[in-house]
Design a protein around this nucleic acid. Sequence first.
RNA 1: GGCGGGUUACCCAAGCGGCCAAAGGGAUCUGACUGUAAAUCAGCUGGCUCUGCCUACGUAGGUUCGAAUCCUGCACCCGCCA
Length: 436
Amino acid sequence: MTENPIELAPQRIDDSFDSIVDELQWRGLISVSTDLDALRQALAEGPVRYYCGFDPTAGSLHLGHLVQLLLLRRLQLAGNIPYALVGGATGLIGDPRPTAERTLNSRDQVAEWVVRIRDQVSGYLGDEGENALHVVDNLDWTAPLSAIDFLRDLGKHFRVGQMLAKEAVAKRLRSEAGISYTEFSYQILQANDFLQLYRREGVTLQTGGQDQWGNLVGGVDLIRRVEQVGVHAIGSPLITNSDGTKFGKSEGNAIWIDPELTSPYAFYQFWLNTEDADVVERLKVFTFLTRAEIEELARQVAEEPYRRAAQRRLALEVTALVHGETAARNVVRASEALFGDGDLRALDPATLGQALDELPGTGAALGDPIARVLADTGVVRSVSEARRAIGQGGVYVDNVRVTDPEATLDADMVLPGGRVLLRRGRRTLAGVRVGD
RNA sequence: GGCGGGUUACCCAAGCGGCCAAAGGGAUCUGACUGUAAAUCAGCUGGCUCUGCCUACGUAGGUUCGAAUCCUGCACCCGCCA
């Protein structure tokens, strides 16, 4: 079960490609774009300044944002100069979602999230050297904008017909939810961001998710109108699972990059459970493995899928990228210990203890009902759900199935180190510390 | 501003005075199978001190022995008209 430690892939571009654009295309990171040949040429002529915006709609970025961060990073590794825009202003307005109007967050809340997201973003892009990351906040130029300025200097360049035709807006108009004027105006603010960054910093490329395409083009159009200059935009595809479910969710919850919100263990498990049909695509998008290395892993998926070599590598690489190599190695060891088929009591107590520390857990006392302890660990939402799970034969203590919903925690369940391992279903684990 | 329609559990959506913790579908979860997969089949899915009790059908009141269902105010959404 324990294999030779795999060495992590260094962050680099794959020099088997002529242009970074070719590598991005191979990795499936470009689904829509302005003239790619023009972009290739611009990139060949020297460092390009480029940006991607992150709106503070929560206190942490999630996997969808990670795609963008990696896109920024790859362009940076190719010698270009990244700008990360934190949407202190646009976060107060709200980008129209296709389904429903957003609830406005308070200014204090948004300001707090701006700080946290700024910190997260900075961690992924080197801030030293000639092409160090620049972080900007669109509140700096949006807040001073008066209604008069907004309407005269910006509004005149936008035709309502075109604004209505933008997909995000059109969808909302077709839906029962409709759209507020506030959200309708969002695209103008984002277009202005690109214009401001072009004027102030010479930024000529914006990247974003495909769902942002309307907004990206809005900026390109505005700059063409106002400055008579052609700039570039790249939209990356929405990552989807081959089975049609949403990528980046586990039991309906988003996978966050903040370890407080999604533990490194849960993060690693998420990636480890990637389906065969998706794993190669994930390796391309989320790791710095080269084309040759990924092709080798693809061969292994095809020939010996049960080994899940590609999933293991993917999970290790992405966990290390987000949580650091030490944390990643720890959760790998924990996973191997807990999912091994050996007797838990035969494991080295220190290893077992460390493994259990990676899991969600709780304290409990002998005699406590197992259903309640399970609920306390958070792997089920309530005692009722725990009882139900036990009734369905889906709960195990130390890998032994529990059948009685009224069962209690007994002394013979306690493993060396005063721990008990609870499991719900095939793969949801929790650790319990027994004591009074 | 006027008129009309709407707000149901994670999502969509039935219900229109008691038989409603609320049909149906989706999704999640569990079991069998397996590779901590996929596909397939089956089952569960408000909470609790669980043969009962407590919350819940936008929100605050009211009518009634009894309301998701009737009435009134309020909030929000949609459409048409101005």
